[in-house]
Amino acid sequence: MSVLIVLDQSDNHIKKSAYEILSYGSQLAAQIGTTAEALVLGTVNDDLAALGKYGVSKVHQVNSESLNHVDAQLYTKTIAEAVAQTNASVVVFSQTHTGKSVAARVAARLKAGLVAGAASLPDTSNGFIVRKTVFSGKAFANISIQSPIKVISLNPNSVSVVTTDGTATVDQLSIALDASKIKVTAVNKITGEIPLTEADIVVSGGRGLKGPENWGVLLDLAKVLGAGTACSRPVGDAHWRPHHEHVGQTGVQVAPNLYIALGISGAIQHLAGVNRSKVMVVINKDPEAPFFKAADYGIVGDLFEIVPQMTAEIKKLKGIA
């Protein structure tokens, strides 16, 4: 019996979402009286023993370059074998690109009930019930998993990272790997920007900015906050900003600690992509904009006057000249 936590990596580093699921999996293991162990796939440059401070006693690695690209078929066989070797009863993923690619497939292979998009620790007082977001963040469902093995894929940014002073033992699992049927011909990483799904703060612009030439005020604010930049669907459709910045129902779904919406009215489809944000701030000249009903803080006014003042105030606060 153990809780096996499958860690995301990209570019040979453990990702932020991985620390969240380490904390989550360790707390779950304590709750059900078992041990938490981590699984790392591919070659990673980080100190794996140090992952013990997030609560795991063991880190298992399958150290092969063929796992540096996420091939769901190859990953699934490898993870299922690791589950067998570690006798895991719960497998935890992060619902990131990698989790979305792999968790469900692993669940099907193990005939394990899946909760994808989990929002909090399971209730194990009577069965095994996991809360997840449904209807694009507009509601939660409590899902009971009945199978002996359970798979949980946790929404990023839904739990806080907890550290202790433990260290973990690291071992290499011996698992025979099939050849991948997917031939990767190019990888294009977006450089110089903070990936939206990993950003703690997101600054997002809508039609209220009136045109792509006006984005400077938004970019300045994002820069002082170390924020990712996003936009509404009309802005993406008009090619004012690149498509990968479009957040909303049909775009990227984000859940940062702080979401700042500039000149976005807050259509229900937009809110569906951002409503898991912890704090939402709206700047809009229209006091009737529906976004004010969903937001935590708001200013009615001209964003071209307000946003530069916000940037200046934050600079002052952070001591940036």
Partner: peptide, 24 residues
């Protein structure tokens, strides 16, 4: 392998705290 026990709506927002435009 799974079943829905029940649904919950998120707690209502406390409401949007409005700040005057001249008080950034």
């Amino acid at each position: 392998l799974t079943s829905i026990v029940n649904f919950e709506l998120p707690p209502a927002k406390a409401g949007c705290k409005m700040v005057a435009a001249d008080n950034v």
